[in-house]
Amino acid sequence: MTSDPLQSPLQVDISSEGRAHLVRLSGSASIEESEELRITLNQLVSDSAPNLVLDLSGLTYITSVGIGALVAAHHRTKKLSGRIVMVNPSPAIQRLLTLIHIDRLIDVFPTTDAALAALQPHT
């Protein structure tokens, strides 16, 4: 069943871009993995890097528990005067985000570059 995109394990790849962490999610965020995702995102956000860019282009599945992890990360970044943004979700994931209006809480950008540019302080 590993070739089934809905069953492939969640992979979380993290890199740094200045005051932001770039988090690339790929595979399926089942309920148990979503609990781990919540902890990972929470630990990533810090005073020195309060921004998160979530690249969702490889994400094939997510539940309300996973959405809850994103909202918790939103709270955490806001508390540290940072921001969380999402990048390029698939049509299936975009539909889910739109249904529960999470895209009104966390902005969605078409590319990572556009997301990182939006996180730059205004001059």
């Binding site: 959405i67 909202v71 249904l99 529960i100 209006h101 999470i102």
Partner: peptide, 14 residues
């Protein structure tokens, strides 16, 4: 809008 950040009801709605 007032419930967007609350962790309740999303599963039922989905």
């Amino acid at each position: 809008a007032e419930n967007l950040e609350r962790p309740c009801g999303r599963g039922l709605m989905l």
